[in-house]
Structure formats: C-alpha cells, structure tokens
Design a binder for these strands. Structure first.
Lengths: 177, 177
DNA sequence: GGGGACATGTAACGGGTTACATGATTCG
DNA sequence: CGAATCATGTAACCCGTTACATGTCCCC
C-alpha cells in the first residue's frame, strides 16, 4: 500500500495533475518508490473513488489536464499510515543470487558486472551528494520536517556507500580489484 | 528472471523436490530471494518445459514426490546469467515514504514503529552472525566458492548494521532515542 | 492547419501473494 | 480406518511493466 500514500504525500506538498506527479516522482520520491504514469493514473482514480482526493472542478475529459487535491479523509489516512505497523519488505537482491550461482558454476565474467554495478552506484551517490549540498546546507539546525527529509537522503547516501564498499571487497575476493 | 536461476543454483547444489526446495529457500537463498511453494512449482514446470531441468524417472502424479536435477543446458544458462548485464533493481523502501509523509503531516507514532523495525533488524543481524560463526570460521583462507558465499552473508550483515545505525540516527532526530 | 508537445487513458502480461483443493503416505 | 503430515497443484488478485491509443493545446 505504498504508492497511494506516496501520492497523497506528493499532493499535499503541492496539488498536481497526473503528469506533473509523474515528473515529480522521477526526481524525488521515485528514488525510493518509482512509478510510471500508468500506475499513477490508475491510483489517482482509486483515490478519487475512495474520496481521499478530489479533482478540481471542470468536466472530466480525455486529454484535458486534471488537477487533484487531498481531502481531509486523505490527510487522516496518511497520518494513520505514518504510525502504522508494517513489516520491512523482504529483501530481493539478484546480485546475491548471482554470487551464489558463481560459487557453484564459477565466477567467469562476474567481475566485470560487479565493476559496472559499482560504477552505477557511484553515479547515484554523486547525484545524492549534489542534492545534499544544494538542499541541506545545515540539516542539524533545520526544523523537524527538513531533518526528516535529510534523513531520507542520508539513507540513500549510506546505502550507495555501503554497496560501493561491499562490491570493492568482493572484487578483491575475486583477485580483481 | 531471478527465481528460475535461484532454483537452478539450488538444484545444482542438491537435486530436490519442490517442497524440499521451498524449505531450503526458507533458510538460505530465501534471505535474498524469498519464494513460496506455489512460485517454485510454477517455475519448476517452466524449467522442465524449457529442458533446463528434468524430473527423475517415474510417472508424474499428483501428491507423489518428484525430484528434479539440472541438465547441461540449465548449467550453461546459469553460467551465462552469472556474467550477464542486468541493472540493479529500483529501490522500493516504504519507510522512506513514511518519513516523507511524516515531514508533511507530522511524525506522531512514527518513533515506535522505527524502534520496532530496529528490533527486527537486530534479530536478523543476530541470526546472520550465528550463521557466520557456525559456517565460516576462516573465510579468508577458504576456496573461492566459500569466499563468495561468505561475501553474500557479509552483505546481509552489513545491510542490517546499516539500517540499525540509520534508524538510531533518525530516532535521535526525533528526540526519541 | 499541421506538427509537436502535453495529457490522459487502455490493454496485455508477468511475478508475487493468498487461499484453497487434492492426492499420497505414515502411524497410532 | 482415521488423522496428521507430506506433497503437488489451482485459482484469483494486485502491483509493476510495456506497448500502444486517443484527445487537447499551442505555435509556426
């Protein structure tokens, strides 16, 4: 049930149309919960159906922009979700499977792929660091909302750093560095 | 395309029936790619169809145990997969969304949930450490296959440690420790 | 008025999840 | 024989993905 709540959050930050939401996802929320426009339209329909959001006036028409805003019930639902009890999702990490497969059938060709992944993680880490420098000059002194947003970014940075270090270690294990 | 390769790996380690695979997943591969028995049976059917595995003799019959083994084509497919180019999956982390929601509607009730998650991660970390102590007394001196398996476990340990530290930091930010 | 960007929407598919159904084997 | 357990299988649903379709607006 993450996507609908992600959309409610985004709409509270700023009422938007489906396409705007899609674009905003691409450059912020989407780092931790990507979504395509098809998913977003589908979910907007359900949220409207459930009376958690509403479209600003004007007749619904295909091809015409529709802007949505969050209703009180939607805000309440989001507040509930913040405090809800929801277990972490199971980890699904194909690289681990590939290492295990390599332990059985040999690791030929694996090192190159690991280096490629390390490079991808390094790029994303750099992007996060840019955002941090730009948007969070003084996280410690900021109000709670900003500190929370910085904590999200810090998690992203920490995870990328972790993967880079781990991949480097595995490459060492393979004698490949 | 991860599950079929996970199954090939497991079957190479030891030919098994569907239910045995399910149980073995639960205590090893499943830490990084969980699967239910329904998924596994479905995939075994497809792998057999594709002639990557075969059932050991005997007529197929509902309710009767069927053991599978990997064919040469299956081993080759797995070797290819080890070296294949496959991007990391997109990150999907509901906790990040909840933090972002909390930044908008307030963080009431969040701290308790964060502590609960930290506890869950601590438990999993302890389980990984047990496995490490039991199965990898001397990873550095072991052959490549074992070193790779240890690297997998090390990733699990590192991730759990990371989450525990990060959650503790966020709780500090909320003034909750 | 025609092309391109903007915007919403439809359809089909695949993997993961849940609930349930059915057949075989064992053991008291 | 009956219950419990082992084992395989069916069905329905949801979410995410991909490809495609349709409508509107603006500007040259």
């Amino acid at each position: 049930m993450s996507l609908p709540h992600a959309i409610l959050t985004a709409l509270l930050e700023k009422p938007s149309s489906g396409l705007e939401l899609t674009r905003r996802f691409d450059k912020s929320i989407g780092f931790f919960w990507p979504a395509t426009h098809q998913q977003i339209y589908r979910e907007l329909g359900r949220l409207e159906e459930a009376a958690l959001i509403r479209a600003l006036p004007g007749p619904p028409a295909r091809g015409r922009r529709r802007e949505y805003e969050v209703l009180d019930a939607g805000r309440a639902a989001l507040r509930d979700w913040v405090a809800a009890s929801e277990d972490p999702r199971p980890v699904r990490e194909p690289l681990m499977l590939r290492l295990r497969a390599a332990a059985v059938v040999g690791s030929e060709g694996l090192a190159e792929e690991l280096r490629r992944h390390r490079q991808l993680h390094a790029e994303r880490l750099a992007a996060y660091r840019d955002i941090e420098a730009r948007d969070f000059p003084d996280p410690a002194g900021a109000p709670e909302g900003v500190r929370l947003q910085h904590a999200i970014l810090a998690a992203g940075i920490g995870m990328e750093e972790f993967w880079i270090g781990w991949l480097t270690g595995v490459l060492g294990t393979l004698g490949e560095d």
